[in-house]
């Protein structure tokens, strides 16, 4: 990799081009490997594709750029506090529409911090949901037979299938 490179260009699964700084890209192991790869040498024009859609990739890059300075150099407690607040604001998003896509992307890009944050956000949102709301967001069918429901109700009085 040429030392003059400060940002790299990647393609989303929708074919849009995105720029990401080298220090931000280092938050992801696969991107880091790409950095060391011939793809970004001066004499290579090929732009690598990231299997993440544009809408999600925008958010992932936003997260990387925000977290990169701290990940690369360490930070004071007050910075950590500020970053925590930023994370909470950043995670205010629709579950089905974008949060689940972020989870998939964080998993695919091996980004532990973002993955943990997204899992915890999803879990916190689920706490307030009913069983039917949970089925809806995860596209799950109630596959208990009426006998099985009856049996669970007997074992655990008060449990609800709705």
């Amino acid at each position: 990799m040429s030392s003059s490179v400060e940002a790299i260009t990647v393609l989303s699964s929708d074919g849009d081009e995105f720029k990401i700084t080298v220090s931000a890209a280092k938050l992801s192991k696969p991107l880091n490997w790409m950095l060391e790869d011939v793809c970004f040498s001066d004499d290579c024009d090929e732009v690598p594709t990231i299997e993440v859609n544009s809408k999600t990739l925008v958010k992932v890059i936003e997260y990387c750029e925000k977290h990169a300075p701290r990940a690369n150099s360490g930070a004071s407690d007050s910075d950590a506090e500020e970053l925590k607040k930023w994370d909470i604001e950043f995670m205010k998003m629709d579950v089905k529409d974008i949060l689940f896509h972020i989870l998939m992307a964080a998993n695919y890009l091996h980004m532990e911090g973002l993955y943990d944050l997204a899992c915890q956000t999803a879990a916190d949102l689920m706490k307030g949901m009913t069983v039917s709301q949970i089925r809806k967001i995860f596209h799950i069918k109630n596959d208990f037979s009426s006998e099985e429901q009856e049996q669970l109700r007997r074992q655990h009085p008060g449990c609800s299938f709705d």
Partner: peptide
């Protein structure tokens, strides 16, 4: 929450 969500599916 997990005890509630055991009714989601098998």
């Amino acid at each position: 929450s997990l005890l509630r969500f055991r009714c989601v599916c098998k």
